[in-house]
Design a protein around this nucleic acid. Structure first.
Length: 285
DNA sequence: CACTAAACCTGGGAGC
DNA sequence: TGCTCCCAGGTTTAGT
C-alpha cells in the first residue's frame, strides 16, 4: 500500500482528528493484526502522530506507542460520532458501505468517533510498544534516510548507489537505504529522471543521481498534494473514506501499452524483483 | 554472498 | 456461468 505519501496523508488527517483524545476501547477482530495487549492501550491519551518510512506511529501517554504498517491494503478510516461537529474532511463511510466491513480487523473506540483499521489482504499489522522499543526496534532502526530530511543528500546517494550493482529501482525501494519509496513512486521517479529501472545503481552518473534525488522528492510531494494514490478501491483510501487523486497523474505506473505522456511511445512493463516495472523506452536510458 | 521464488491473503479482471 | 491465470501501493524467509 501505502507508500510514504499515503502514510503521510493518513498522518496529517489523524493529527487533526484524534490527537488529544483518549482511546476508550479496542475491538480486535483478527488477532494476528493487533500485536500486543489491548489493555496496554485502553485509557491512554493520543499525544501525537508520526511517520517513519511507510510506518505510522501513534504516540500515547505513559510511554506507549502504536506502530502501524499498512503493507499492501491497510486502511484507516475515521468516522466521527453522530452529532460530532466535523470541521474538516467529509467522511464517506467506506465508499458507500457500512463500517465495520468484513475487512475491518481492529476498531478503536475514541472519544469523538471510531477509527477503523481495514485490510483486505491482512498483511499489515499494529504493534504496541514502549518508547524505548521505538528507538531500538530493528524495523525502525534499520530504515534509511527520509527523503525530506537533510541527510537525503547527493553525497549519501552516491555512496549508497556506488555500493550496489543491483537495478536502481530495487535500490530505491530498499527501505534500509531510502525510507518510504515503494513501487509506484519508484517507477514514477525513474521516468521523471529519464533513467532505466534496470540500470545498475553503481553505473549512475553524478548528474543522474542529482536529478534522481530531486525527482524522488518531487513525486513524493506530488503524491502528498493529491492525498496519495488509490489505484484500486480495496487498497488505499484516505481516512475520510475518499480515494486519493494521484493515480490520475501516473506517468508510467500501470500504464503498459498506453502512450507516454511526453513522447507518445508505448509504455513497457517487465517484472523486476517480483514487482511490476513500467517505463518509456524512449524517455528512459 | 547474491539472487530468485515462495509465502503471507483476498480479491478483480481477462480470456476461454 | 465458471474455470484458470495473472495482477495487485510490502516485506520476510527459504532455497539455489
Amino acid at each position: 500500500m501505502p507508500e510514504l505519501p499515503e502514510v503521510e496523508t493518513i498522518k496529517r488527517f489523524l493529527e487533526k482528528a484524534i490527537v488529544g483524545k483518549t482511546i476508550k476501547n479496542i475491538e480486535v477482530r483478527k488477532a494476528k493484526i493487533f500485536q500486543g495487549k489491548p489493555e496496554e492501550v485502553i485509557g491512554r491519551k493520543i499525544e501525537g502522530i508520526e511517520r517513519r518510512g511507510k510506518m505510522l506511529i501513534i504516540k500515547l501517554s505513559e510511554d506507549k506507542a502504536l506502530v502501524v504498517h499498512f503493507k499492501l491494503t491497510g486502511q484507516m478510516v475515521w468516522i466521527p460520532r453522530a452529532g460530532e461537529r466535523i470541521t474538516f474532511g467529509h467522511p464517506i463511510p467506506f465508499a458507500g458501505t457500512e463500517l465495520p466491513a468484513k475487512t475491518t480487523h481492529v476498531i478503536f473506540d475514541i472519544n469523538g468517533g471510531k477509527l477503523f483499521y481495514n485490510d483486505l489482504r491482512q498483511f499489515g499489522w499494529i504493534k504496541v510498544i514502549t518508547n524505548y522499543e521505538l528507538r531500538i526496534t530493528d524495523y525502525l532502526k534499520n530504515l534509511g534516510p527520509e527523503p525530506f530530511d537533510k541527510e537525503f543528500t547527493v553525497e549519501n546517494l552516491q555512496r549508497i548507489f556506488s555500493r550496489s550493482s543491483k537495478p536502481i529501482k530495487l535500490v530505491l525501494m530498499d527501505q534500509t537505504k531510502i525510507a518510504g519509496v515503494g513501487n509506484i513512486y519508484a517507477n514514477e521517479a525513474l521516468f521523471e529522471a529519464g533513467i532505466l529501472p534496470t540500470k545498475p545503481a553503481k553505473k549512475l552518473r553524478n548528474e543522474e543521481i542529482k536529478k534522481l534525488r530531486e525527482v524522488v522528492i518531487k513525486v513524493l510531494r506530488e503524491g502528498i498534494k493529491y492525498g496519495g494514490s488509490s489505484a484500486k478501491d480495496e487498497a488505499y483510501i484516505k481516512p475520510t473514506g475518499e480515494p486519493g487523486g494521484y493515480q490520475q497523474h501516473f506517468r508510467v505506473y500501470q500504464r503498459a501499452g498506453e502512450k507516454c505522456r511526453k513522447c507518445g511511445t508505448i509504455i513497457k512493463r517487465i517484472n523486476l524483483g517480483g514487482r511490476g516495472t513500467f517505463w518509456c523506452p524512449k524517455c528512459q536510458k
